[in-house]
Amino acid sequence: MSERRVRRHDPGRRERILDACLDVVGEVGVAGATTRRIAAAADVPLGSITYHFDGTDALLHEAFERFARRVSDRFEASLSGAADVEQARSAVVDLITVDVLTDPQELVLTHELYTLAARDPRYRRLTHAWMARSRHALERHFPPATARLLDALVEGLTIHRALDTEPHGRDEVVRAVALVTGADRDLG
């Protein structure tokens, strides 16, 4: 009588692969994110990658989609607690100085996604959806044109804070948010 092969029950395998993909991209970039490396990081057989995803690009796309959603959820949560415009301004300052992309790996992932989006319309759709969610959250408190500028300010100052050898201090960020939102007359 032959032995029956026992299948390993691993309901979280697909999600673990997605998380491992982001970890690997954060460590070595998209160029170094091989399926072998991702499978090893997820502690799954290499065949699990091809079982769950139609190639490396499908895996990368879904992992970046998950990443963008996670960051957008935090962004929306930060702004949803604001009861008025002043609290919304404060939330934006906190997003830039404390909350968004404070983890160095998230900054790397963001730049890897931007690089893919610059070349591939599928990834560009992902970044556009991310920006649309950010603007929608900002539009609860600010006019659409202001929300668009604030979104760019958040993005730009977050990058500068992470990469600049002399990043903008909180007071400068408060001033920039005030200028964009029309509150600069209150600052003198």
Rank of each mutant, 00 (worst) to 15 (best):
H168A: 15
H160Y: 05
A82G: 05
R119S: 15
G29M: 09
V24P: 03
E172I: 02
L187K: 01
E15P: 00
R124K: 14
A132S: 06
L163G: 02
P144F: 09
A83K: 10
R124N: 11
A145G: 08
V154D: 06
R36Y: 11
A77I: 05
D73Q: 14
L149V: 12
A33K: 07
R36G: 15
A162S: 13
I17R: 07
A152K: 11
F142E: 12
A183C: 02
G156D: 13
R122V: 08
V6S: 07
P144G: 12
L59M: 11
L18S: 06
P11D: 14
G81I: 01
A145N: 12
E166Q: 10
H111A: 06
V30T: 14
I17A: 06
A39V: 03
R119Q: 15
H160I: 03
R140E: 15
V154F: 04
R69P: 01
L116V: 05
V24W: 02
R70S: 14
F53C: 11
M131Y: 02
F75D: 05
L163P: 00
V173I: 12
L149R: 09
G47I: 00
S48K: 01
H111F: 11
V154L: 14
L95I: 10
R119D: 15
V28Y: 05
P104L: 00
L113N: 03
A31H: 04
D120E: 15
I38K: 07
V180A: 11
L113C: 08
A20R: 07
H168M: 14
D19I: 01
G156I: 10
